[in-house]
Amino acid sequence: MLSKEKINRINELANKSKKYGLTDKEKQEQQELRKDYLKNVRKSFKNQFKGMKIVDPNGEDVTPKKVKDLQKEDEL
């Protein structure tokens, strides 16, 4: 999870960008923070998929192959 300080900094830069604009250094910092944020979101989303199991009304496991493959990666 992204630290509270980084999230606050993302919000500070977004607000400053709307009101006054950003310096080149701040724009670069903002891009790096966004990259970290998106990386974290993708990782979290992937972990949710790894814990997923789909069962049809007959009680059979119909979890998609891609999800099963992700789950097997963790077992190794």
Rank of each mutant, 00 (worst) to 15 (best):
Y37H: 07
N15C: 07
T23W: 10
K66A: 09
L38V: 07
V62K: 07
L13W: 00
D36E: 14
K43Y: 00
S3F: 07
R34W: 09
I10R: 06
K50N: 06
K43F: 01
I54P: 02
D24T: 15
S3E: 08
K50A: 07
F49P: 05
D56M: 03
V62Q: 06
V55P: 01
D24Q: 15
G21S: 09
N15H: 14
K43R: 05
K66Q: 07
Y20T: 12
K16N: 05
D69G: 02
K16S: 02
K66P: 00
D61H: 05
E29G: 03
Q28Y: 10
Q28R: 12
N15P: 02
Q31T: 14
K72H: 12
F49L: 15
L13I: 05
N47Q: 08
S3A: 10
K65M: 08
D61Q: 01
E73D: 12
E32H: 08
D61I: 09
K39Q: 04
F49R: 12
N58W: 11
K6V: 04
I54W: 12
K18H: 15
K27W: 06
A14H: 07
N40T: 11
F49A: 11
K46Y: 06
K16V: 03
K25H: 06
N40S: 13
Q31N: 15
Y37E: 00
A14V: 09
D24M: 12
M1H: 06
N11D: 06
E73L: 13
M1L: 04
I7G: 00
M1A: 03
L2V: 14
Q28L: 14
G21V: 12
K65Y: 08
P64C: 08
T63E: 03
E60H: 11
R34H: 13
P57E: 06
E60Y: 14
K19S: 14
V62P: 01
P64E: 03
I7N: 02
R34Y: 14
G21W: 15
K66R: 10
E12R: 02
V55F: 04
N11F: 08
I10G: 00
L33F: 04
F45P: 03
Q71Y: 11
L33I: 01
L38F: 06
E60P: 01
Q71D: 03
R9L: 01
N8G: 02
Q31G: 11
K35R: 12
G51N: 13
E75Y: 13
L76Q: 10
K16G: 01
Y20I: 13
K35S: 09
D36Q: 13
E26C: 05
R42E: 09
N8T: 03
L13D: 00
K46E: 13
L38G: 01
Y20A: 15
Q31M: 14
G51T: 11
A14W: 05
F45Q: 09
R9H: 04
D61G: 03
T63G: 01
K66H: 08
D56R: 09
K25C: 02
K66T: 06
L76Y: 12
L2A: 02
I7P: 02
E26A: 01
K68M: 04
N15Y: 12
L33P: 01
Q31V: 15
D69A: 13
E32R: 05
K25Q: 09
D69V: 13
E5H: 10
E12K: 05
Q48V: 13
K43P: 00
V62R: 06
G21T: 11
D69Y: 12
N8Q: 11
L38C: 03
R42L: 14
P64S: 08
K18A: 14
D56Y: 07
L22Y: 10
E26Y: 07
F49H: 07
L38M: 06
